[in-house]
Computed example of a mutant assay.
Amino acid sequence: MDSHSGHGYTEQKDAYLKRIRRIEGQVRGIGRMVDEDKYCIDILTQISAVTAALRAVSVGLLDEHMRHCVVTAAQESPEAADAKIAEASAAIARLIKS
């Protein structure tokens, strides 16, 4: 765990949870669409919407990480900053792959 209290997203936690619950509902809706044999393109459209919503949450969390965790680490030491930047770079690489 980080040496500071809270995470960068803490102030926006309720908003993130609301968005994630909305995404969960969208995913359940996709399951219903498949179960009800809906048109392929309609299902793909919904999958695209869920993917975009997840990406938006990811970008928001990454932004919070940079603004909070990386900045806090930079105030602690260059080594801590390097570690947080490496975490962020790895997260960005994973996001780009997906």
Rank of each mutant, 00 (worst) to 15 (best):
I30V: 01
A91W: 01
Q26R: 09
T72W: 11
I20W: 14
S48C: 05
L54T: 14
I47A: 04
T51N: 14
L95N: 01
C40T: 01
D63R: 12
A49H: 13
S77P: 09
P78R: 07
R94E: 13
K13E: 02
G25A: 06
C69W: 01
S77T: 10
V70P: 03
L62E: 02
G60N: 00
L62M: 14
S58F: 15
R21L: 11
K38F: 04
K84V: 04
A74Y: 13
M1T: 06
V50W: 12
S77E: 02
K84H: 06
R28P: 06
S98T: 10
E11C: 06
A52E: 11
A90P: 04
D37V: 10
E36G: 04
C69V: 02
A49R: 12
A81W: 04
A93N: 07
R28C: 04
A74I: 10
M66N: 05
H4K: 10
H68G: 03
Q46F: 13
A73I: 00
I23G: 01
V59K: 06
G25C: 08
G60D: 00
D37C: 11
K13N: 01
D82R: 15
S58K: 15
T45G: 03
S98P: 03
T51Y: 14
S48W: 03
I30C: 01
D42K: 14
H65W: 07
K18E: 10
A83I: 14
S58Q: 15
A49V: 10
L17W: 01
E64G: 03
A91H: 05
C69Y: 00
G8F: 00
G31I: 12
K13C: 05
H65M: 11
M66R: 05
A52V: 13
Q75L: 11
D14P: 04
A52Y: 11
M33W: 09
